[in-house]
Design a protein around this nucleic acid. Sequence first.
DNA 1: TGAAGTTTAA
Length: 545
Amino acid sequence: MACLQLGAINQRRLIRYELFNRFCTYSPELPDWFKFPQGEQSCVNSNDDFVLPTKLEFLEDGASNRTHDCRTDVRVVSHDGKDVNLDDISRILKSKFTSPEAVFVALDHCSVKISEGLVNTVLRRFSNDWVPAFGFFIWADTQVGYKHSSDSYDVMVDILGKSKQFDVMWGLIDEMVRLGGLVSLTTMTKVMRRLAGACRWNEAIKTFHDIEQFGVKKDTLAMNNLLDTLCKERSIKHAIHVFLELRNEIPPNASSFNVIIHGWCKARKLEEAWQTMKEMRKFGFNPCVITYTSLIEAYCMEKDFRMVDAILDEMHTHGCPPNIVTYTIIMHALGKAKETHEALKVFDKMKKDGCTPDTSFYNSLIYIVGRAGRLCDANDIYEEMCKNGISPNVNTYNTLISAACDHSQEESALKLLLKMEESSCKPNIKTYVPLLKLCCKRKWTKILLYLLAHMFKKDISLDLSTYTLLVHGLCQNGKLDQASLFLEEMVSKGFIPKEHTYNIMIRALERGNMERAKAKVQQLMVQAQSMKQSSHHFVAKHQIG
DNA sequence: TGAAGTTTAA
C-alpha cells in the first residue's frame, strides 16, 4: 500500500514539474531591478534568503527520497540554523493527505528527535492545514520519550477549531481531560472563541456552562472571556443575554461592563452603550479610560467629531484623561475621513497632555500619511520613530509595504521585506497580501512563487482569504493554469471556495474555451463539499497517550 | 489576537 502511495506522489510530482516549467517560461514582464539567481546553484550558497528558490523547492511534494539529487540535498540544510528535522518533516507533510491517519502512516518510518520547539513550529507552518497538523501531532506523541506540553495541545485545539473540525476538536479535549492537567481556561477560551467564530454561539455558551466538567473554574474571568468572544464575533445579543442571566450567579467586575460597552459600540448601538455605562456606575464601578475610549471610537465611526470632543472634555473633568490609545483612535479616524490636517493636529494636542507616542501611534500616523500618497513622509516618520527609540513592529512594516504597493513602488515594497529580515522582524500573512496582489496584477509569476516559498519558510500558512485572492487575481489576468492549481490546493486543504470564487474561475475558463479544465473545477467543488463530512472518526480510533 | 488603538476592499 505504501508503494502505491509513493507512485501517486511521483506522478503528481511530474505534473507539477511541467506546470512549473511553463510558468517560468511565460512570465515576460519581470522587472530588471529584481535580481535573479543566474543558475540553480546561486541560491544554494547564499545567506541571503532573497533569491528565487530552485525549481525543486516547489516540487518537494512527496515522502520519497528516491528522487533526491544533489540539489535537493542542499535544501535540507536550512539557512536559518533551524533543526534539520523540521525541513524533512515539512517536506513529508506537504503531500496531499486525505486523512490524519495517512499522515501517521507516512511518518511511521521516520526517526526524529522531537522537541516542543519543533512541534510548535510544525503546527505553525500547517496551522491552516489541519490534516497534516493533526496527523503529525498524534504521531509525535507516540515517539518514545516525548509527551506534548499543554501549550502544544492548546495550539492543536485552536487549529482544529479554526478549520471547523469541531468533532475532532472535542475528541482531543476529551483526551486532554482523560490524561489530566492539560485543560486550562486558555484551552476553553480557544474553544469558545472558535465556536462563536463559526456562528455556533449557543454551543459556545453551553461550553461555558459546562466548563467545570473540564476542570476549569466558572468565575468572573471565564465569564468575561465568554462575553468578549460573543461581542467580538458579532453577537452582542447573545452576550447581553448571558450577562443578564449570569449576573446573580457570577459577580461581574469593571471589565465585564467594559466588554459589554465595547460590544455595543462596535455594533453602533450608542444608546445602549450609555445605558450600560449607567448600570456600571450603579454596580459601583467608575467608567475608566477604556470605557470612554470605546465610546469615542464609536463616535469616530459615525464621524461625529464634535461628540468626540465633548467626551474628551468629560474625561478631563472626571479626572480620567485620555491616553495614547484614545488619541490614536481619533487621529486615525480623522485621517480616514480625509481630514489629514486635523489628524496631524492631534499630535500637538497629545503632547500638551504629556502623552508620548508609541509604536501603534506611529503606525497609524504612517498609515494616514501613506494613504495620502506622501510616501516620503511615511519614511521620515519611520526614521523618526527609530531615532526616538520606539521600535517598529510587524505592523509598521506591513503598513509601509502596503502603502508602497498601493502607489506602485514595488521596488521599495520588496526592499522593505528585506529590511524586515535584517531587523529580525518576523513577517505575518498580512505582510505578503499586498505583495501577492501586486504580483497577480503585474503577472509576475516568478516573484509570486518566490514569495509563496518565502512565506512557507517563515512558517506562514495560507488561509482561505489568501487563496481566494490568488485565484481571483490570477483569473483576472488569464493565468488560468495557476489559478486552478491554487483552487485545487485550497480544496485539498479543506477550504471550501466561495461561490463568487467558483463563478469567477468558471467564467474565465469558459471565455478561454477550456472545457476540460472547467469540468475539473466543477468536480473539485463537489469534492470540496464532500470533504466537509469526512475524516471525523479519527480521534475515536486513535487514542493518544 | 482578545478589556480600548495601528495593515482592509473593487
